[in-house]
Write a protein that binds this DNA or RNA. Sequence first.
DNA 1: ATTTCTTTGCAACTCGGTTGCATCCCAAAT
DNA 2: ATTTGGGATGCAACCGAGTTGCAAAGAAAT
Lengths: 137, 137
Amino acid sequence: MEPKIEEKLLLKNIKPTPMRQLVYRMLTQEETALSLSELESKFDKVDKATLYRTLKTFEAHQLIHSIDDGSGSIRYALCDEDCTCRPEQLHLHFVCKICQKTYCLKEKPIPQPDLLDGFTYESANFIVKGVCPSCQK
Amino acid sequence: MEPKIEEKLLLKNIKPTPMRQLVYRMLTQEETALSLSELESKFDKVDKATLYRTLKTFEAHQLIHSIDDGSGSIRYALCDEDCTCRPEQLHLHFVCKICQKTYCLKEKPIPQPDLLDGFTYESANFIVKGVCPSCQK
DNA sequence: ATTTCTTTGCAACTCGGTTGCATCCCAAAT
DNA sequence: ATTTGGGATGCAACCGAGTTGCAAAGAAAT
């Protein structure tokens, strides 16, 4: 499982430093999108600034995507293998009002919005709030 | 035009103090949603904390609604007369990538999202990014 | 081995949002 | 008319997430 991480980074033209491999591994272990601080607290000890820059690098190379779920902080989740972060590939995000977790619903594409004349569409962010399966009943 | 402000506030059970009337009037003059800081800068001199609490009061009484457009700061815009901020009444918001303004597309309802089993729908936030009419050339 | 560029870690700073607290205002009670 | 009580206001201080500067450490190129 592990030997591949280095290659995943290389595939996206990211130099696979130990730090980056560590962060990548951590991200693969999460089923929900994490904020910088949440991610920080998953480690015994990391520098927030380094983590921050690592995430920025990952995002710039489309290894992860960021989600603004309205909580006030941005969350990050791994992109799919073939993701190019283009509008057609954008998916819904779901925020549970109980556990506050942010889920990527990768199989649920964002519907093409119906806009008024004069507005052009480039990208979108569709956040749904409700209760997630693990918090039901 | 002006004599009505007091009544609009009373209608929502908000004590119509001079400060609140002033803020309300300012909001009616905007066609886009404003953040706390943006609103602050529209006045010669206001206290940020008072403005903050005024907005919170307005929001709690459903006179305005807040939008997290992904810019990092929350923006506020007046609700429609009959708005109860219920999911069925939610509308799209549009952020212009050029002028950065956030428009309320009140006549464009948020489509009912198609969710996975186990996820319940309570509310949603649909932000569309692109270029607004005034920035089209 | 030396130079050069990148990455990392620490500290410090920014900025929006938020809170504590004293004061002010107004309305109800006396 | 005066007192009293609760909300509204203004100022200052705080908070936390994000961000930047800078110097040390590491890796790559010469």
